[in-house]
Each structure stands twice: as structure tokens, then as C-alpha cells.
């Protein structure tokens, strides 16, 4: 187990180094990095300050180490669009809104996807299963930004049930959470269904039935517990998928989260903020995957001896 954790840890560090190299080189690929790092209207003083911060007069390998050193301390320099704030401050400031939206939409998608997935596995081949498959297919095919606009059109403009945009009370959260969670409902449901089908075929389920356990106990206790591992493994990917998916959803709903921050930063060419957001989300993703792999190995002994 220790050996496994150490190997995964080393792998994660390599991945992190890879991400930092990509983020580092992107700003420097197109000639003079100052053209990318600074917006057109920056004055001479900021030019000098930013050159010093990133050590832009040094050779590239020293520049890279300066970048890693700064990044590991969460120092990505001052923002230009939002004067008087550093890039990292901005990310942390916008994080709660994104986390709020993501956690609600993940919670709702799990609550929806697991029962539908289980039921469509149990009632395989019936109308219910067909409906489940249809939801799964649609979930992978609907563009989320378009779904968001259609939801606004129907439920905010036509019916007037929810506000069109902004952050506020509970009613502000419904539409963005649905638009954001739609995709994860589909992928969660698909996985739950296929894993549940495998489990229901197994010997111990037959035994549980022979023992005379009530059907609901067989399905929800003995079945679901064993079927839960594959959906768990994609959980990390889905969480971070929601963080990046939030770029479009937050833009459509004017939700003041990290995604909206990222898009505004890109449009304003505020590269300090872009670097901060990209590194932050990548670190989150890598950490999440590491955690889930370790959990996975803990639950399923076959993994750690492989």
C-alpha cells in the first residue's frame, strides 16, 4: 500500500511539472512574453516590475525555476483588469461561488443518476430503461451553453419562475445547477447502470436472493454497495469537469465564479490571472485524482498489488 501511494505520488509530481511547463511555455511561445503577459495599455513601470517578477532577462531555464518558485507560493503577480488585487486573491475570491454551484449540481446529479441508473439496470429492457438510455444519450449530446440559454428562455423568460442571471438566493441557483449537472447525470447514470448490471449477474447476489432477502435489500444494499466503485473513480473527473464546464455556464448566467473570472481574464488578456486559474484548477484535478486512486486502492485490494 505504501509503495503504491509513493508511486502514485511521484507520478502526480511529474504530471504537475508537465502542466507547469505547458503554462510556462504558452506565454513565451509567441515571441516576446511581455506582449502576452501585459495588456497593450500597461505603462513602463509595470513593464519593469513584471520583467523582474518573472526574471524575463534571465535564460529560459532560470525563468522556469522562477516561475515554479513563484507559483508554489501562489504568487502570480498583480492583475491588470482588477487593479489593486493579485491574481491569486482573485481566484480565491471567486472560488466560493463556483464551489457552491458545483456542489449543488453534483449533489443533485448523484441523487438523480444513481436511482435512475440502478432502476434501469434492474428493469433492463423495459420502458424505464429506454428512458434512462435516452437521458444518457441526450446528456452527452446537448451543448451545455445552448441548454443554459434554452432553460433561461423557457423558465425565466416565458414562465418567469426563476431569475435569468446573477447570484443570490436559492432560485438563482436552480437553472445554472441543472445546466451544469445535466452532463454529469448522464455519465454517472451510464456507469451506474453498466456496473450494476455486472454486479446483478454475480454469485453473491444469487445467494442473497436464495437466502430470501427482500428484493429492495438485494438491490440497494448488496448490489449498489458493490457497484459503486466504477462510478466513484470518475467522480474526480466529473468534479473538475464541472469546474471547467463552469466557464460556459457561469458566462451565460453571469455567475461570479472562477469560470467567469477566467473568461474575463482571457478577454482582457490578463495573463497573470489566466496562469493562476489554470494552475489552480490543474492542481485541484491532479490532487483529486491522487486522492481517488488511493481511496480506490484502499477499497479494492486488487489494485494495490498490480
Amino acid at each position: 500500500m505504501q509503495r503504491y501511494i509513493i508511486i502514485r505520488l511521484i507520478q502526480s509530481v511529474f504530471t504537475l511539472i508537465g502542466v507547469s511547463i505547458i503554462v510556462f511555455s504558452l506565454a513565451r511561445l509567441s515571441g516576446n512574453p511581455l506582449d502576452v503577459l501585459l495588456p497593450d495599455e500597461a505603462d513602463d513601470e509595470t513593464f519593469i516590475r513584471i520583467s523582474e517578477l518573472w526574471g524575463l532577462n534571465d535564460p529560459w531555464y532560470i525563468q522556469y525555476f522562477t516561475f515554479v518558485k513563484n507559483a508554489s507560493r501562489g504568487e502570480f503577480g498583480p492583475s491588470f483588469k482588477w487593479q489593486g488585487r493579485t491574481a491569486m486573491e482573485l481566484v480565491i475570491l471567486h472560488l466560493p461561488a463556483t464551489l457552491q454551484l458545483a456542489s449543488i449540481s453534483i449533489g443533485v446529479s448523484v441523487l438523480l443518476a444513481v436511482p435512475i441508473g440502478v432502476m434501469s439496470a434492474v428493469k433492463k429492457g423495459t420502458m424505464l430503461d429506454t428512458v434512462g438510455k435516452l437521458i444518457a444519450l441526450l446528456g452527452q449530446s446537448l451543448p451545455s451553453f445552448w441548454l443554459a440559454i434554452v432553460l433561461i428562455w423557457i423558465f425565466a423568460v416565458q414562465l418567469g419562475w426563476f431569475p435569468t442571471s446573477g447570484r443570490g438566493g436559492f432560485s438563482n441557483m436552480v437553472l445554472p445547477a441543472v445546466a451544469l449537472g445535466w452532463f454529469s447525470v448522464a455519465s454517472f447514470m451510464r456507469l451506474t447502470r453498466s456496473s450494476m448490471l455486472n454486479v446483478l449477474d454475480s454469485e453473491y447476489i444469487k445467494l442473497a436472493r436464495i437466502k430470501g432477502l427482500p428484493e429492495w435489500k438485494v438491490v440497494w444494499k448488496h448490489g449498489l454497495k458493490n457497484a459503486a466503485i466504477p462510478p466513484l473513480t470518475v467522480f474526480g473527473a466529473i468534479v473538475v469537469g464541472q469546474m471547467t464546464g463552469s466557464v460556459t455556464i457561469e458566462t451565460v448566467f453571469a455567475w461570479p465564479g472562477v469560470g467567469l473570472l477566467a473568461l474575463q481574464a482571457v478577454n482582457a488578456r490578463d495573463y497573470q490571472v489566466i496562469q493562476a486559474v489554470t494552475m489552480f484548477i490543474s492542481v485541484l484535478f491532479i490532487g483529486m485524482n491522487l486522492l481517488i486512486d488511493i481511496l480506490y486502492a484502499y477499497i479494492d485490494p486488487r489494485i494495490r498489488f498490480n
Binding site: 504530471t15 506565454a27 502576452v36 469546474m243 466557464v247 489566466i274 486559474v277 484548477i281 490543474s282 485524482n289
Partner: peptide, 21 residues
Amino acid sequence: RVVDTFLALPLILMALVIVAV
């Protein structure tokens, strides 16, 4: 390891950055 790195990149965000450059 390179594959892992690319899979860890936030897709839309990275695309936005590359296009910005």
C-alpha cells in the same frame, strides 16, 4: 506521463489560453 499531463489540463480553459496567445 505526458498523456497524464494532457488529461489533467482543464480542456476549455487551456483552449481559451492557447487561443488568447
